[in-house]
Protein backbone atom coordinates (compact mmCIF):
# COMPACT_ATOMS: atom_id res chain seq x y z
CA UNK A 1 0.00 0.00 0.00
CA UNK A 2 1.28 3.45 -0.82
CA UNK A 3 1.91 5.83 2.04
CA UNK A 4 2.24 9.62 1.86
CA UNK A 5 4.26 11.53 4.44
CA UNK A 6 4.14 15.29 4.71
CA UNK A 7 7.55 16.45 5.89
CA UNK A 8 7.25 19.98 4.49
CA UNK A 9 8.84 22.52 6.79
CA UNK A 10 10.63 19.81 8.73
CA UNK A 11 14.38 20.10 9.11
CA UNK A 12 16.75 17.15 8.93
CA UNK A 13 16.78 14.56 10.32
CA UNK A 14 12.95 14.47 10.66
CA UNK A 15 12.10 13.50 7.05
CA UNK A 16 14.48 10.52 7.30
CA UNK A 17 13.07 9.55 10.69
CA UNK A 18 9.48 9.64 9.45
CA UNK A 19 10.33 7.66 6.30
CA UNK A 20 12.28 5.10 8.30
CA UNK A 21 9.36 4.65 10.68
CA UNK A 22 7.11 3.88 7.73
CA UNK A 23 9.63 1.39 6.29
CA UNK A 24 10.07 -0.19 9.73
CA UNK A 25 6.30 -0.58 9.81
CA UNK A 26 6.53 -2.80 6.70
CA UNK A 27 5.57 -0.23 4.06
CA UNK A 28 7.28 -0.65 0.67
CA UNK A 29 5.92 2.32 -1.25
CA UNK A 30 6.49 5.53 0.68
CA UNK A 31 6.31 9.04 -0.76
CA UNK A 32 7.73 11.88 1.34
CA UNK A 33 6.99 15.52 0.57
CA UNK A 34 9.91 17.74 1.56
CA UNK A 35 10.87 21.35 0.98
CA UNK A 36 14.64 21.14 0.71
CA UNK A 37 17.29 19.46 -1.41
CA UNK A 38 19.16 18.10 1.60
CA UNK A 39 16.14 16.06 2.66
CA UNK A 40 15.98 14.66 -0.88
CA UNK A 41 19.63 13.60 -0.68
CA UNK A 42 19.24 12.07 2.77
CA UNK A 43 16.10 10.16 1.76
CA UNK A 44 17.92 8.83 -1.30
CA UNK A 45 20.69 7.54 0.96
CA UNK A 46 18.13 5.98 3.28
CA UNK A 47 16.51 4.13 0.36
CA UNK A 48 19.87 2.87 -0.91
CA UNK A 49 20.90 1.66 2.54
CA UNK A 50 17.72 -0.42 2.62
CA UNK A 51 18.28 -1.82 -0.88
CA UNK A 52 15.33 0.23 -2.16
CA UNK A 53 15.03 2.88 -4.86
CA UNK A 54 14.25 6.58 -4.43
CA UNK A 55 12.91 8.77 -7.21
CA UNK A 56 12.40 12.47 -6.61
CA UNK A 57 10.22 14.87 -8.58
CA UNK A 58 9.55 18.56 -8.11
CA UNK A 59 6.30 19.31 -6.40
CA UNK A 60 4.75 22.59 -5.36
CA UNK A 61 7.00 24.21 -2.77
CA UNK A 62 9.55 21.42 -2.87
CA UNK A 63 9.96 17.79 -3.87
CA UNK A 64 8.22 14.45 -3.58
CA UNK A 65 10.57 11.54 -2.93
CA UNK A 66 9.08 8.12 -3.61
CA UNK A 67 10.83 5.11 -2.03
CA UNK A 68 9.92 1.71 -3.43
CA UNK A 69 11.27 -1.83 -3.70
CA UNK A 70 11.96 -4.82 -1.51
CA UNK A 71 13.68 -3.95 1.71
CA UNK A 72 16.77 -6.01 2.38
CA UNK A 73 17.49 -7.56 5.76
CA UNK A 74 19.33 -5.38 8.25
CA UNK A 75 23.11 -5.65 7.77
CA UNK A 76 25.36 -7.10 10.44
CA UNK A 77 26.66 -4.45 12.81
CA UNK A 78 29.84 -2.87 11.53
CA UNK A 79 33.11 -3.56 13.30
CA UNK A 80 34.45 -0.75 15.43
CA UNK A 81 37.25 0.92 13.51
CA UNK A 82 38.97 2.79 16.27
CA UNK A 83 38.55 4.47 19.60
CA UNK A 84 37.79 1.10 21.13
CA UNK A 85 34.67 1.00 23.17
CA UNK A 86 35.47 0.45 26.80
CA UNK A 87 35.29 -3.31 27.30
CA UNK A 88 32.56 -4.61 29.52
CA UNK A 89 34.94 -4.94 32.45
CA UNK A 90 34.85 -3.40 35.88
CA UNK A 91 35.65 0.13 36.96
CA UNK A 92 38.57 0.11 39.40
CA UNK A 93 38.98 2.93 41.91
CA UNK A 94 42.55 3.29 43.14
CA UNK A 95 42.85 5.74 46.05
CA UNK A 96 46.42 4.92 47.18
CA UNK A 97 49.64 3.58 45.72
CA UNK A 98 49.79 0.37 47.76
CA UNK A 99 47.50 -2.56 48.49
CA UNK A 100 46.23 -3.40 51.97
CA UNK A 101 47.73 -2.64 55.39
CA UNK A 102 50.49 -4.34 57.35
CA UNK A 103 53.62 -3.65 55.37
CA UNK A 104 53.95 -0.61 53.15
CA UNK A 105 56.79 -2.17 51.17
CA UNK A 106 54.78 -5.32 50.53
CA UNK A 107 51.74 -3.18 49.66
CA UNK A 108 53.67 -1.27 46.99
CA UNK A 109 54.87 -4.50 45.41
CA UNK A 110 51.38 -5.92 45.52
CA UNK A 111 50.06 -2.85 43.72
CA UNK A 112 52.67 -3.31 41.01
CA UNK A 113 51.65 -6.95 40.62
CA UNK A 114 47.96 -6.06 40.72
CA UNK A 115 48.29 -3.64 37.77
CA UNK A 116 50.45 -6.13 35.89
CA UNK A 117 47.81 -8.83 36.39
CA UNK A 118 45.06 -6.49 35.18
CA UNK A 119 47.13 -5.74 32.07
CA UNK A 120 47.56 -9.43 31.34
CA UNK A 121 43.92 -10.27 31.94
CA UNK A 122 41.64 -11.38 29.10
CA UNK A 123 38.91 -9.16 30.52
CA UNK A 124 40.71 -5.95 31.43
CA UNK A 125 38.78 -3.31 33.39
CA UNK A 126 36.76 -0.72 31.48
CA UNK A 127 38.12 2.11 33.53
CA UNK A 128 40.78 2.94 36.12
CA UNK A 129 40.19 5.92 38.39
CA UNK A 130 43.17 7.32 40.31
CA UNK A 131 42.71 9.65 43.27
CA UNK A 132 44.69 10.91 46.25
CA UNK A 133 47.91 8.83 46.63
CA UNK A 134 46.78 6.63 43.75
CA UNK A 135 47.88 9.32 41.28
CA UNK A 136 51.50 8.60 42.23
CA UNK A 137 51.20 5.44 40.12
CA UNK A 138 50.52 6.94 36.64
CA UNK A 139 52.78 9.90 37.53
CA UNK A 140 55.50 7.81 39.14
CA UNK A 141 58.89 6.48 38.09
CA UNK A 142 58.18 2.73 38.32
CA UNK A 143 58.61 1.45 34.73
CA UNK A 144 56.60 -1.72 35.25
CA UNK A 145 53.61 0.24 36.53
CA UNK A 146 53.74 2.66 33.59
CA UNK A 147 54.08 -0.24 31.16
CA UNK A 148 51.09 -2.06 32.65
CA UNK A 149 48.99 1.10 32.47
CA UNK A 150 49.99 1.78 28.87
CA UNK A 151 49.12 -1.76 27.95
CA UNK A 152 45.70 -1.34 29.59
CA UNK A 153 45.19 1.88 27.67
CA UNK A 154 45.99 0.05 24.42
CA UNK A 155 43.36 -2.52 25.29
CA UNK A 156 40.76 0.24 25.45
CA UNK A 157 40.75 0.75 29.21
CA UNK A 158 40.02 4.34 30.14
CA UNK A 159 42.41 5.87 32.67
CA UNK A 160 41.29 8.97 34.55
CA UNK A 161 43.65 10.70 36.95
CA UNK A 162 42.44 13.31 39.44
CA UNK A 163 43.93 16.68 38.44
CA UNK A 164 43.51 18.22 41.90
CA UNK A 165 45.45 15.30 43.40
CA UNK A 166 48.26 15.58 40.84
CA UNK A 167 48.46 19.25 41.63
CA UNK A 168 48.51 18.62 45.38
CA UNK A 169 51.50 16.29 45.08
CA UNK A 170 53.19 18.58 42.52
CA UNK A 171 53.03 15.78 39.95
CA UNK A 172 51.01 17.48 37.19
CA UNK A 173 53.97 17.61 34.82
CA UNK A 174 55.01 14.05 35.67
CA UNK A 175 51.86 12.27 34.47
CA UNK A 176 53.02 9.57 32.07
CA UNK A 177 49.84 7.79 31.18
CA UNK A 178 46.12 8.56 31.45
CA UNK A 179 43.90 11.61 31.17
CA UNK A 180 43.82 14.42 33.69
CA UNK A 181 40.31 14.43 35.08
CA UNK A 182 38.11 15.95 37.77
CA UNK A 183 35.64 15.02 40.49
CA UNK A 184 32.68 15.45 38.15
CA UNK A 185 33.95 12.83 35.70
CA UNK A 186 35.30 10.44 38.29
CA UNK A 187 32.11 10.55 40.37
CA UNK A 188 30.14 10.13 37.14
CA UNK A 189 32.09 6.98 36.26
CA UNK A 190 31.60 5.56 39.76
CA UNK A 191 27.86 6.23 39.72
CA UNK A 192 27.20 4.84 36.25
CA UNK A 193 29.58 1.86 36.25
CA UNK A 194 27.92 -1.55 36.40
CA UNK A 195 30.65 -2.82 38.75
CA UNK A 196 33.15 -0.89 40.85
CA UNK A 197 36.18 -2.39 42.55
CA UNK A 198 37.99 -0.30 45.15
CA UNK A 199 41.65 -0.94 45.89
Amino acid sequence: MAVEIDAMGKACPMPVVLAKQALDGGENDVTVAVDNQIAVENLTRLAESQGMTAVSAPREGGFAVRITGERKAAPAPEPVACCPTAPGGATVFIGKDFVGDGSRELGENLMKMFLYTLAQSDTPPACLLFMNGGVKLPAGEEPQVIESLKSLLDKGCEILVCGTCLNYFGLTEQLKVGTVSNMYDIAGRLLTAPRVVTV
Binding site: C12, K20, N42, R45, L46
Partner: peptide, 8 residues
Protein backbone atom coordinates in the same frame (compact mmCIF):
# COMPACT_ATOMS: atom_id res chain seq x y z
CA UNK B 1 25.59 2.89 9.25
CA UNK B 2 24.01 6.16 10.45
CA UNK B 3 25.57 7.96 7.47
CA UNK B 4 24.34 5.22 5.13
CA UNK B 5 20.86 5.76 6.51
CA UNK B 6 20.97 9.42 5.48
CA UNK B 7 21.30 10.92 8.95
CA UNK B 8 23.52 13.65 7.59
Amino acid sequence: SLAEMGLL
